[in-house]
């Protein structure tokens, strides 16, 4: 298969980034330590030319800006939704598959920057919706915010294997979702449907009676079904395995978006790949992100070929990451 190498920021307003200054560009060999062009994935612009024309300096990085919180909705004891009024430009930029921002309470130190996926970006009223599950100090701090919040963005690498979703036209896509990871799948479903695709969602109930995204998927026009994917031993239950198998046959999905934990991705991708090898996978990105700029390394993962991938910025083919255990 063609090597899947991509930087989500390549060719955007944020390219070339500071990695170019350190000869660490993900795409351009000229901006690594090699001396000739051997572009790994052409995105329509030449970052080398941009870098030289910009006086051998990177473009300006994203910065925190203060915005108003329009509404806070408590979804569950440990789950809440923030609606934030942002600028028109930011709302537009965040209306893309895999969009996320860093959030921080005013006055908190940089270490509290929290990567948060966009569930919806309303580009008419310029309101972004984000769902947060309280799991540690950073999310506890966000629970304390009142009317103002600091937002840094846009970032776009919240979903891996985006290419498969973006290239899908007039076909169908299956979303398998569980827990708070379902939030970015809502925005993905919206964008996929804009390309004439039909979307079928199997939504795990988890600890609630239904997932908080159910109505949102329905409002978009997706077909939604509540399930409990796993039995007590953590395997996909026979009933649900049969449902998935039936849906794959009936709908002929070309792409499956797995929206859960990495454990969930492994389970789902292994199972579906066993049924149909032609299906491509997209996955919600669960890596721990601190800088979002490919610098700190906290999000680094290793794929099937042993290549290190800075997953906050670099795209990978999920089957090359989550299938390695099965293949080994």
């Amino acid at each position: 298969m063609l090597r899947y190498i991509d930087c989500i920021d390549a060719g955007t307003d944020f390219c070339p980034c500071t990695l170019a200054e350190r000869k660490e560009c993900i795409i351009c060999p000229q901006l690594q330590d090699r001396n000739v062009c051997d572009c790994l994935n052409w995105k329509g612009t030449c970052m080398c030319q941009e870098f030289i024309c910009n006086g051998l300096k990177s473009k300006k990085s994203r910065e925190f800006k203060k915005f108003d919180i329009v509404e806070t909705v408590k979804l569950r004891e440990d789950l809440f939704q923030l609606d934030i009024k942002v600028t028109k430009g930011l709302a537009r930029e965040l209306n893309n598959i895999g969009s996320y921002v860093f959030l921080k309470r005013e006055g908190d130190i940089e270490a509290y920057s929290t990567p948060s996926s966009i569930m919806n970006s309303d580009t008419v009223n310029n309101i972004i919706s984000i769902v947060i599950r309280i799991v540690g100090p950073k999310t506890k701090a966000l629970k304390e915010v009142e009317d103002k919040i600091l937002v840094k963005g846009p970032y776009w690498n919240g979903i891996q294997g985006q290419r498969f979703l973006k290239e899908l036209k007039n076909k169908s896509c299956l979303i398998l979702a569980r827990g708070v990871s379902a939030a970015p799948a809502v925005l993905a479903a919206k964008k996929v449907m804009e390309n004439g695709n039909q979307v079928y969602v199997l939504l795990d109930r988890g600890r609630s009676t239904e997932n908080f995204t159910k109505q949102k998927f329905k409002d978009l026009g997706c077909k939604v079904e509540d399930v409990s994917f796993f039995d007590r031993s953590g395997n996909i239950s026979g009933e649900n395995a049969a449902i998935i198998e039936h849906l794959l046959k009936k709908w002929g999905f070309k792409v499956v978006l797995s929206a859960g934990s990495d454990w969930f991705h492994r389970k789902m991708i292994s199972f579906i790949r066993g049924l149909d090898k032609s299906i491509n996978f997209s996955t919600v990105n669960n890596s721990i992100m601190c800088c979002g700029e490919g610098v700190c390394g906290s999000c680094e993962i290793i794929n099937i070929r042993g290549e290190r991938i800075r997953s906050c910025k670099q795209q990978y083919d999920p089957s090359e990451v989550f299938l390695k255990e099965m293949d080994n």
Partner: peptide, 26 residues
């Protein structure tokens, strides 16, 4: 392509090879 034309020359001159439109030679 363009990276070479700027590094070893005076930048992309928008020649008949049209790298910006069709992507770089590999």
């Amino acid at each position: 392509p363009m990276g070479n034309c700027i590094k070893y020359g005076k930048g992309c001159s928008m020649c008949i090879l049209r790298c910006p439109s069709y992507g770089p030679r590999v």
